[in-house]
Amino acid sequence: MESVGLNAYLFVGAVLFVCGIVCMAIKRNGIGVLMGVELVLNSANLNFVAFARYTPLGLDGQVIALFVIVLAAAEAAVALAIALNFYNNHLTIDVDRGSELQG
């Protein structure tokens, strides 16, 4: 049995998750926000793979992780296209500039 257990992996996952959320919440650069999204999804993936290793979730965990990678890629593609579209219309990627819709 290794000394490094499941909780250590989950801890790393938690750090990734929080970093991702904070990144989404404070970055003004739209691309930076999308990077935050990637961090969040990866944190969940790390959890899944760790659970696959240590719990009866087994191979299912890895399968789910693979799907998440694919879905994250798809989401990133659309998000990037939308960010570029935003840039084209606002001539900036600063998300704070897009606060026309409010109230």
Binding site: I21, M24, A25, I26, K27, R28, V33, V95, D96, G98, S99, E100, L101, Q102, G103
Partner: peptide, 8 residues
């Protein structure tokens, strides 16, 4: 507020 970051 219309501010995305606050929403998040």
């Amino acid at each position: 507020t219309g501010r995305l970051r606050q929403y998040v």
